[in-house]
Amino acid sequence: MSAETSPLPAGLARRIDHGVFVVLSRLFAISVLVVALAILSPQFLSWGNFANVMRQASVQFLMAAGLTIVVLTGGIDLALGAILGLAACLSASLMSQGHLAWGILAALAVGLAAGSANGLLVTFGRIPPFIATYGMLWIAHGLGYVFMKGEVIYGLPAGFRFIGTGFVLGIPVPVIIAAIVLLALHVMLHGTVLGRAIYAIGGNPGAARLSGMPVRTRLAFVYALCGLLSGFAALVVIARVNAADSGIGEDLLLPAIATVCLGGTSLFGGVGGIAGTAIGAVILALVLNGMNLLGVQTFWQSGVMGAIILVSVLADQVGGSKLVGKST
């Protein structure tokens, strides 16, 4: 295809090519993983394990959903693991003292407050997102340690644990929650003015500003939403593991970023979507499940996450531009 014969404008053609590459490569990755694990591990193809993978993927998705929207605007939230950890600690502590409603409220409030702080620092403080949220990472992390003093909280109310471990009509509850969040965010991104603004800001911030869009307010909202979703994810996580300690959010940042990268959302902003992140979460859950079934030491986990981030971003960059090169 040369530029003259192509009826599509170059920008749109590029986006479609990027999309095709992302979808094909992810389908390929899923099939390779499924076939390899089915051959290597006899337990893999069982209903119990499938429910396991889907539950893990749902939690993974909830942790990466807010981040996806931040990344779509061309930003990043490095604080999300630490915010999740802080929210989990406060919430678990209140719940173990019998204040269920306050506990739920605390997790959401902590997430919203920390996310709003990120948003204000990035927009009105004019601090680059990765620095503002990196600073916030250590603040939330420090506060979590101060609050917990090295203790671990066990035993949350059985009714509350339902959102992490329960089943409705044979479907794990986290899967249903993730599906609802996916649908809501998908509608927000593709059916509302706000969603279009998010893509516009990520695609070309200068043009977005010149077109009279309230860029700062929209951006601040996106970071606040990401924080709120982190607080919400904290509830599902503690309901699932039935415990919380100050280190609970420590190892969650790399997997969350890996999920977004696997989902094909461009780190430069403006390209990708929440549905991709759901696919990314499934791939990541398959990888984690496979490592577990094959008895790979957990020491390798952060390395595997790092490698996934590098390979998927590199593949999209090289694969995407190869296709673009062909079409122009």
Binding site: L254, I257, S302, G303, G306, L310
Partner: peptide, 11 residues
């Protein structure tokens, strides 16, 4: 850079 070095961080 931050995503590259975050990847090597994990590795």
């Amino acid at each position: 850079p931050f995503i590259v070095t975050l990847g090597t961080f994990g590795i």
